[in-house]
Design a protein around this nucleic acid. Sequence first.
DNA 1: GTCTATATTCTGATAGAC
DNA 2: GTCTATCAGAATATAGAC
Lengths: 165, 165
Amino acid sequence: MRDLGARVGMKAQSLYSYVASKHEIYDAMFEQGYRELADWMSAGGAATDARSDAHRFFAFCVSDPVRFQLLFLRTLPGFEPSPSSYALAVDVLETMTARLATVGVRKARHVDLWTAVMTGLASQQIANDPGGARWERIVDDAVDMLLAHTGSPQRSRPTTGRSPR
Amino acid sequence: MRDLGARVGMKAQSLYSYVASKHEIYDAMFEQGYRELADWMSAGGAATDARSDAHRFFAFCVSDPVRFQLLFLRTLPGFEPSPSSYALAVDVLETMTARLATVGVRKARHVDLWTAVMTGLASQQIANDPGGARWERIVDDAVDMLLAHTGSPQRSRPTTGRSPR
DNA sequence: GTCTATATTCTGATAGAC
DNA sequence: GTCTATCAGAATATAGAC
């Protein structure tokens, strides 16, 4: 609270004129994070290319490790999003599920697999090669693998000429 | 430190007869965690079945979320493992890489892809379905997908009769 | 709308008695 | 080897002056 106050030119105590508690701030950040995700993904245009979508999501994750931790790792001690914030998160994730359906991913288990793979790539990048690109470089690889396994047959191997190995 | 002291029947201050600082404890836990991982994986016998290896690793991760966070997420503020602990971690991970080579995964980028997928599955399980099995259920699926993409041709589709869809 | 003052509790850590 | 006593500072939060 002191750090935050300093950042906005206030004493920590003055922040309590605006929010009731520290967790209320976490909750607002959680909600804002998911709104940013929705904006970020829709800014990429219609979901037609699985690779570019994956790169957009990956970039969103690694561009703000703290936000990534808040939205996807949920490791903040004692924090749980409020029902309304959680509902927003579910809503945004459903929109992303719809984008996946566009490239032929329709089964719930396959959507779960996509989220696990993409967040896994991002978390390893953040944890083990911050500032680098070691896991970013295999995003394309991962997308091809996922599409081959989960996508509709006709879109599972787009002819981009960049297939790995 | 007070909680820890209480757990071992001591005042927090007495712990400082054994360790110099809290971070020294973190470091010991980090080292112990990787030793446990090495023991856990080797207890599964020789690495011949990618699926059972994957399930072993997944179980190791979700069986202790705090340890998982310490070893693979690295989100503890201010903590970095000591050089010797880090060296141990690298060593254990190399042993796991050797296990992967057994099932035909030899390229460094493919090893990175495996770790990202497996830790991704575990972190999603821990964060979004603690105590459940939503992501555990797709471990087999993920292994088949990974092997098809990264394994040696002859082992990429083991005839277990459980291949998904 | 922001401040000072303060309450309360907790944090990691040290000194020194027994 | 563990204790009591204590420290210095940080945490979240409230009350009330200006």
